[in-house]
Design a protein around this nucleic acid. Structure first.
Length: 274
DNA sequence: AGTACGCCCTGGCCGC
DNA sequence: TGCGGCCAGGGCGTAC
């Protein structure tokens, strides 16, 4: 599932490929990738003929700033993929390809999404923050420990809080488990029960785990691939996610799996005490 | 306002 | 071998 590191990898690759190009045509298939925020016609109307001025990321959202007052926003959901094809490489387009962006140099961008949890919509740039309604970026240079302390000042379980995009942007199920393991914090701990040292540790773990994941170009467990179709390597560095029963790399205790907020949650019962 | 839960969707896996 | 049933989960709508 694409989380912050995967979307960041896609963003960086995509910027090199489509920055400054003009969208000549957008073909949108029948599935409801389009949902509420605007019909297919509205998206075509707003984006066709426009230049890609910038490719950015906010949380798990990809942002395509157009040469107008609008930004085209894409969320990859659980199984979304963006595949770039230069004009020389004829693409293999299948039943899971829901949107095709064509550019003025003949290149194309395919949006595939098996489970159709993805979203595509247009937002006027001045309403973007309000529409997305996201917490701070954990890797932003302006994100400081005191911000994390503030986020943690509630009784909600720590994992549930990390997954709440309104509190902190970009963390999904995989990195929530990996970050909490790195910080030696039990996923069910009430957020406001963390000590100063634990918040410090969590703050550092957020940076290290997410940065390493970006360096390794993300986690490819189920469907994630980059814009060239290549897998990331971070799954090889996972220490607890989907390692139920395997020895903890720190203490060799068996990794446990529980359900938290409806999500499979993996942790070391010895290193991460309640 | 905060929280809990069902729903969307498909492929993969399990058991019979 | 085939097939029904269940599971994975990000985000949103609904209920409390």
């Amino acid at each position: 599932m694409p989380e912050l590191p995967e979307v960041e990898t896609i963003k960086q690759d995509l910027a090199k490929k489509i920055l400054g190009k003009r969208i000549t045509q957008i073909d949108i298939g029948p599935p409801r990738i389009i949902r509420k925020q605007g019909s297919a016609r509205e998206i075509k109307q707003a984006a066709e003929g426009r230049l890609i001025k910038n490719v950015a990321r906010r949380g798990k959202f990809l942002l395509f700033h157009l040469d107008s007052e609008n930004t085209m926003v894409l969320h990859l959901g659980m199984t979304g993929q963006l595949l770039f094809f230069s004009s020389e490489t004829p693409p293999a387009h299948d039943k899971h390809t829901h949107v095709i962006f064509r550019f003025d140099d003949g290149s194309m961008l395919f949006f595939r999404d098996i489970r159709k949890f993805g979203q595509l919509f247009i937002v006027p740039r001045n309403r973007l923050n309000k529409e997305l309604d996201l917490g701070p970026e954990p890797l932003s240079s302006s994100f400081q420990k005191r911000h994390l302390t503030y986020i943690m000042s509630r009784t909600t379980g720590i994992k549930q809080l990390l997954l709440d995009q309104k509190r902190l942007a970009g963390i999904g199920n995989i990195y929530a488990d990996e970050v909490l393991f790195d910080a030696c914090i039990h996923p069910l701990r009430p957020a406001n029960s963390l000590t100063e040292q634990e918040i410090e540790h969590l703050f550092v773990s957020l940076q290290t785990v997410l940065r390493e994941a970006i360096e390794l170009r993300g986690t490819s467990i189920s469907d994630y691939i980059d814009v060239s179709g290549k897998k990331g390597q971070m799954q090889n560095k996972h220490r607890v996610y989907q390692k139920t029963g395997e020895p903890c790399p720190r203490c060799s205790a068996a990794v446990q799996r529980i359900k938290v907020a409806g999500r499979g949650t993996h942790f070391c019962p010895n290193c991460q005490r309640i």
